[in-house]
């Protein structure tokens, strides 16, 4: 898994390049998020469009990333594919995060 970052309109976009955030890579994801967001400001937009699957460990890692960033920075999500969306809805975590259909939709709303 690789995390790739870019910035648009003061929003830090972090794209997850990898098909899964599961128990095997949850720790790597958590550490990677901490490193890539360190010393910066503003909302973080997590682009999950390339992620086909997460399990509850992956969900926990995304929640951990949100807690790491708070209270100064907000974590919002974009591009949830069907399996990822299902986990967020099942656990009602979709009500905790800002969830956008695409990165573009998120940027339009957050700008």
């Amino acid at each position: 898994m690789e995390l790739v970052t870019s910035t648009q309109s003061d929003i830090q976009i972090v794209a997850v390049h990898g098909p899964r955030i599961d128990a095997a890579v949850a720790l790597m994801f958590k550490d990677g998020m901490r490193n890539i967001t360190e010393g910066r400001n503003g909302t973080v937009l997590l682009d999950l469009n390339q992620v086909d699957f997460i399990d509850s460990s992956g969900l926990g890692a995304i929640v951990a990333a949100m807690k790491d960033l708070s209270p100064d920075r907000r974590l919002v999500l974009a591009g949830l594919r069907p399996a990822v969306d299902k986990v967020f809805r099942l656990t009602r975590m979709d009500t905790v995060f800002g969830v956008f259909s695409t990165v573009e939709a998120a940027l339009t709303d957050l700008r």
Binding site: A64, M66, K67, T91
Partner: peptide, 24 residues
Amino acid sequence: APDINVDIAMMPEGGFGWFMIRSL
């Protein structure tokens, strides 16, 4: 289901596994 109506600092990072299995 873990309680998610809490402050962000208290948001659960685990405990979803069996809830998910039983729901599905």
